[in-house]
Computed example of a mutant assay.
Amino acid sequence: MTAEQSRPEISAAFDVLAERARNSGYQLIREPHTPAGWALLDAADGEYLHTASSLTEIARYLDE
């Protein structure tokens, strides 16, 4: 996501990716106090599985 994108665009992108993550057995969360910024957790036990600095990177991970 770029700095030019508005909060509603980011929120919509988050909603789409959060649903994709849920369908894959993950939970997508915002990690504002870490350099990565976003994290995918295992939905069953909350274990961190992947972190990324952008929602675009999260989408790429889900595409793999």
Rank of each mutant, 00 (worst) to 15 (best):
D63F: 06
L62A: 02
S53Y: 06
S54C: 04
S53W: 06
Q27H: 12
E9T: 10
E47L: 15
D15A: 15
L28E: 01
M1R: 07
L40E: 00
P8G: 10
S53A: 13
E19D: 15
L62W: 02
A3Y: 07
Q5V: 09
L49V: 09
T2W: 08
L40G: 01
R7Q: 12
E47A: 14
R60W: 10
G25F: 00
P35E: 05
V16D: 14
F14K: 13
Q27S: 10
F14D: 05
A3H: 10
E47H: 15
S6Y: 07
R7E: 09
E19W: 10
G25N: 01
A12E: 15
V16W: 07
A59T: 13
W38Y: 08
I58V: 06
S54Y: 04
I29T: 04
D15K: 15
D42H: 04
A36Y: 03
Q27I: 11
E4V: 06
A12P: 07
R22L: 13
A21P: 01
E64Q: 13
G46N: 05
A52N: 03
A43N: 02
A12L: 14
Q5W: 13
R20K: 14
A39S: 07
Y26Q: 02
L55E: 04
A39L: 07
A21I: 04
T56Q: 10
H50S: 05
Y48A: 15
R60P: 02
L55C: 08
T2A: 08
A13I: 09
L41G: 04
E19P: 07
S24E: 11
T2R: 09
P35G: 01
E57T: 11
E57D: 11
T56W: 10
A3F: 12
G46P: 05
A59Q: 10
Y48K: 15
G46I: 05
Q5R: 13
A39G: 13
L28V: 01
L28K: 06
H33A: 05
G25I: 03
